[in-house]
């Protein structure tokens, strides 16, 4: 259960960290506000999952200890969320892939036999649906905008697609949780994810990626090199003052 919750939490924290770095860098003030909103939702979800994970942790770590004291090899987020914000297209396409995954994920988890998890997922589901509306809206606008935006959006889709399968990667211990109705079965989530992707990309007049290559490993701490830059920045103040209260 600890590992399952940490995966949920880490996905959200690392994505929130990426989004939080974009505030005051967006194309319009409205987008600054939207990106902060979405980032805040992911951060809130991460905090919920960490605080619940704390109950299953032999070390009794709290949310900050989970976030600030684990290394790159201990983070178990999917490699997709750590990918950098090359341009606005990368930001919205990464968001779109995550949202297309989280909506069915939280739908299933909202009916989890674990009531605490179900409650957290039900709240997160509302947020994820709004995020999906926002991100798919932008994918369509960019795909169906100018030739430059179309090209940039297609590049982002092609670049980020190989990191999507990692969202669904699980652990052998998940089987039991799935059987108990606690965790979501990735095999159930995948078809809905695929349907969302193809519907939105079609409307955006973008090509579905055909390259079968997928980069896995995030769930076991085998990350892309980007995470090793994101974490030290995030953890710097906390680690510089061991034991301090903030």
């Amino acid at each position: 259960m600890l590992s399952y919750l940490l995966r949920l939490a880490d996905d959200n924290l690392v994505l929130a960290q990426r989004l939080s770095a974009l505030i005051a860098r967006m194309p319009e003030l409205e987008e600054d506000i939207a990106i902060a909103n979405i980032g805040l939702d992911h951060l809130g979800q991460a905090r919920n999952f960490y605080s619940y994970a704390s109950q299953f942790d032999a070390l009794g770590r709290d949310e900050d200890q989970f976030a600030m004291l684990r290394s790159e090899r201990e983070f178990v987020n999917a490699v997709l969320v750590e990918q950098p914000d090359v341009d606005f297209a990368h930001t919205v396409v990464r968001q779109f892939f995550v949202d297309a995954y989280q909506v069915p994920l939280y739908e299933v988890l909202a009916a989890s036999t674990d009531e605490t998890l179900a409650g957290m997922a039900a709240k997160a589901l509302k947020e994820a649906r709004y995020h999906l509306e926002y991100s798919s809206g932008w994918v369509i606008r960019l795909g169906d905008g100018t030739s430059e935006s179309h090209e940039r959006c297609q590049t982002a889709v092609d670049t980020l697609w190989p990191f999507t399968a990692d969202l669904f990667a699980g652990e052998t211990s998940d089987a039991e949780l799935i059987a108990q109705g606690v965790a979501a079965d990735p095999a159930v989530l995948r078809p809905q994810f695929d349907r969302t992707i193809s519907a939105v990309l079609a409307e955006a007049q973008l090509r579905c990626p055909s390259d079968p290559y997928q980069r896995l490993g995030g769930r076991t701490g085998f990350h892309t090199e980007h995470l090793g830059h994101l974490l030290p920045e995030m953890q710097s103040v906390y680690r510089a003052h061991p034991g301090a209260t903030w």
Binding site: E28, F88, T146
Partner: peptide, 12 residues
């Protein structure tokens, strides 16, 4: 940096 995004929004 956002010019192409705003343009895309208008074009769409």
């Amino acid at each position: 940096d956002g010019a192409w995004v705003r343009e895309a929004g208008r074009a769409h």
